[in-house]
């Protein structure tokens, strides 16, 4: 728990990820308005907020899956929203995990994981598979390597999807409501995996509706509302003593739903 922003290791290094005045419109209506956010290396930042508050859009913009309408995004100091930058090269440094897993259904688990190493990084199949099997063993899926995704439970699919994102050894991992599609009893296995990634020092930016998860994994929690970061700080501050009435109302609804 290095604590609040700015991170403890000082101001001599630029943040790993820096968003400055990011705006995103869909058909004229703004989803993100002048959003500014820094994520330091090894920091875990959790985005919370109602559906439609812009969490997923923000993650998709960082991964350049959506072009932004204004502002800039920097990764390792490089301006990645510059139109001259090759987006494929940027995405290789960012891992992304989706709410609906998005495993490739026509490939086995191990082929899903080795696709990018083989096709993007040109590594030989044997070497890529060895690495994939090591990672699968770490997440307890050794016996599922040769299965097709539809033979796996939701939790197993999501763990495989996380491994697929990790195999590129990304600088930054984006997790978009990775537990929202899971049955309650399967949520735990994915959360445990994310916590172990945190212990390894992986820099993560994640959107979630699991407040308990946000509390246990976050260095910093950001409350998004109407495309802006309304409030941010350490989890105990934002989740337990929110300053803004809208944050309070949002958390109140979760408390009533028994999910806090």
């Amino acid at each position: 728990m290095s604590g609040a922003n700015p991170p403890a290791d000082g101001a001599d290094r630029p943040p790993l990820l820096a968003l400055d005045g990011v705006r995103k419109e869909f058909g004229g209506s703004p989803v993100l308005r002048s959003l500014t956010l820094d994520v330091a290396e090894h920091e875990v930042v959790v985005l919370i907020g109602a559906s439609g508050s812009g969490k997923s859009t923000l993650l998709r913009c960082i991964n350049l899956l959506e072009p932004i309408s204004d502002g800039s995004i920097r990764l390792d100091g490089e301006h990645i929203t510059d139109p001259r930058v090759d987006p494929d090269r940027v995405r290789r440094r960012i891992g992304m995990v989706f709410q609906s897993y998005n495993l490739f259904p026509h490939m086995t688990v191990v082929d899903n994981i080795t696709l990018a190493p083989r096709r993007v990084h040109g590594r030989p199949r044997a070497e890529a598979e060895e690495q994939a099997r090591e990672l699968l063993a770490r997440v307890g899926l050794s016996d599922k390597a040769s299965e097709y995704p539809d033979r796996l439970s939701g939790g197993q699919q999501q763990r495989a999807a996380i491994v697929r994102a990790l195999v590129n050894t990304p600088r930054l991992l984006l997790l978009d409501e990775v537990t929202s599609a899971l049955d309650p009893e399967l949520v735990g296995e994915v959360l445990t995996l994310v916590q172990s990634l945190r212990a390894d020092g992986m820099t993560m930016l994640l959107a979630t509706h699991e407040m308990g998860f946000a509390r246990s994994v976050a260095d910093r929690v950001c409350f998004l509302d109407g495309g802006r970061i309304l409030e941010q700080g350490p989890p105990e501050q934002v989740l337990d003593a929110p300053e803004h009435p809208r944050t309070r109302r949002f958390l109140q609804r979760f408390a009533e739903g028994g999910r806090l």
Binding site: D88, M96, A165, N168
Partner: peptide, 16 residues
């Protein structure tokens, strides 16, 4: 479309 998003997020080009 999530399939393309997943593939592109792994660094695959459009063609790949």
């Amino acid at each position: 479309p999530g399939q393309i998003a997943a593939a592109r997020s792994l660094g695959l080009t459009y063609r790949q």
